[in-house]
């Protein structure tokens, strides 16, 4: 069975979003280092810093010591806060040191895919949680009872939309028979990307039920097919599947109608379904039928029907009136 090779090639395809997350992480490490050193030196040599800031013109003209005491805007920091920040520095450094490992997940055979992904995002999320705790600490809003847990796990549900925009893609190795992707829908937000590397045989269209207008969905045989997926500025999910499964691409930018967006490269026969505990053959067939349905344009409307739709000015007016009345009635919220 092919495994590590596809994972490393997938990481290469996703290098852009991964490195932008990692550089944000590295900057955060440096920021925290800077804050710590400012806090530590606040006690010792703020005079030297202030003197330097004022430049040479101040020499002999400004009493820098006095100037420094006046501008002690950074209030004194208590030991607990410094200790907390040191912990955060270690946490962020540790995440940064994991390099690409931070985005890799291996799902134990038999484990629940959704839970494994949730846990991995929760672990990555600690970087966001830590950043929040830094902000809260600096603005004196931190409270142990509310915020301490952010450093242990910071589940996806708590992520802000900005965080969801910069979250790194996740590369998940999973046994084909455990590939139950429906539960992952809740993580497809912001710019979150998930790539499932299926090992061994798997259902023919495991991602079919995740196709929705704004989500990039791919089933492919090779990582090289993921370039457009990686570049998409929205959420996406991909599965690298064996020969027997369907191959398709749902690209939200490809058009307004579902059949413009969904391109099916290979649709296996209904006998491609596999024997799986808890996933019946008819359920698997339903996924294939759904793919076919979405990808197919409806037949062109009969000429008579077309005439009726644009039934002269009177018809248009009626429609407009109806729309207006509906709006007035404010039925949208119902």
């Amino acid at each position: 069975m092919q495994s590590d090779d596809r994972v490393s090639r997938t990481l290469k395809e996703l290098a852009g979003p991964i490195s932008s997350f990692r550089s944000a992480l590295a900057s955060a490490v440096e920021d925290v280092r800077g804050i710590l050193s400012t806090w530590r030196s606040a006690q010792s040599d703020s005079g030297e810093q202030r003197r330097a800031e004022l430049g040479c013109f101040a020499a002999g003209r400004i009493d820098v010591e006095r100037f420094a005491t006046l501008l002690a805007v950074e209030e004194a920091v208590d030991a607990a806060t410094v200790a907390r920040l040191e912990g955060i520095f270690d946490l962020l450094s540790d995440l940064a040191d994991q390099k690409d490992g931070v985005v890799r997940v291996k799902v134990e055979p038999g484990a629940v895919l959704r839970d494994a992904v949730a846990a991995a995002l929760g672990r990555i999320g600690r970087a966001f949680g830590a950043a929040r705790v830094v902000g809260l600490s600096r603005s004196h809003r931190y409270e142990d009872s509310l915020h301490q847990r952010f450093l242990r796990e910071y589940p996806y549900a708590l992520w802000s939309s900005s965080e969801r925009q910069i979250a790194p893609p996740l590369v998940v190795e999973v046994a084909g028979q455990d590939l139950r992707a429906e539960g992952l829908a809740e993580f497809l937000d912001g710019r979150q990307k998930i790539v499932l590397v299926a090992q061994g045989k798997c259902p023919p269209a495991p991602l079919a039920r995740l196709v929705s207008p704004g989500v990039f969905v791919v089933q492919a045989a090779e990582p090289v097919a993921l370039a457009a997926f990686a570049a998409y500025q929205g959420p996406g999910i991909a599965a690298l599947v064996p020969e027997s499964a369907a191959l398709f691409t749902h690209d939200p930018q490809a058009g307004a109608r579902s059949w413009d967006r969904l391109k099916v490269a290979r649709l296996p026969q209904e006998d491609a379904v596999i024997r799986l505990e808890g996933l019946s053959a008819s359920w698997q067939r339903e996924c294939l039928r759904q793919l076919q349905e979405i990808a197919t344009a409806p037949p062109a409307p009969a000429p008579a029907a077309a005439g009726a739709a644009s039934n002269g000015p009177a018809g248009a007016q009626v429609e407009r009136l109806a729309a207006w009345l509906l709006k007035r009635a404010d039925l949208q919220g119902l």
Binding site: A52, E53, G55, C56, G135, S139, H140
Partner: peptide
């Protein structure tokens, strides 16, 4: 010739939340 010092320079705008 002035001996340039990075500490002369204005910092990037402070964007952290303002204290409560």
């Amino acid at each position: 010739r002035p001996k340039l010092d990075p500490r002369w320079q204005v910092r990037q705008p402070d964007q952290r939340p303002v204290p409560k």
